[in-house]
């Protein structure tokens, strides 16, 4: 079980750790204290992953280019 704060994990890292936690719990080989800790960690990981999945918000913008070809801002793009 890693000690990295859950919020710093990417979705991929979080779900990989969650899978690991679940398989450990499934095995039933973990001490009771440990299994409680694992469960708490797992719950946080799931919450984090859920949040990441709920963030699925589409936002499309096009870059506006200045005279010298460098980006000067964005304009929202609709209807594509």
């Amino acid at each position: 079980m890693s000690d990295t704060p859950v919020t710093e994990l990417s979705f991929e890292q979080a779900i990989a750790e969650l899978e690991n936690v679940v398989s450990q719990l499934d095995n039933g080989q973990v001490a009771l204290d440990e299994s409680i800790k694992l469960y708490e960690r797992g719950a946080k990981l799931k919450e984090h992953c859920d949040a990441k999945l709920k963030e699925a918000e589409e936002k499309v913008a096009a870059i506006k280019l200045g005279e010298n070809g460098t980006p000067s801002g964005t304009t929202p793009v609709e209807g594509l």
Binding site: V22, D26, S35, K46
Partner: peptide, 27 residues
């Protein structure tokens, strides 16, 4: 695919809960 991930995550969540409650019940 978001939906796949969500269902996978739900499965994991279920297993997590079951895992820990089963552990307690067994004990």
């Amino acid at each position: 695919v978001r939906m796949d991930l969500m269902s996978h995550l739900d499965t994991l969540g279920g297993r997590l809960l079951r895992g820990v409650s089963q552990g307690t019940t067994l004990r």
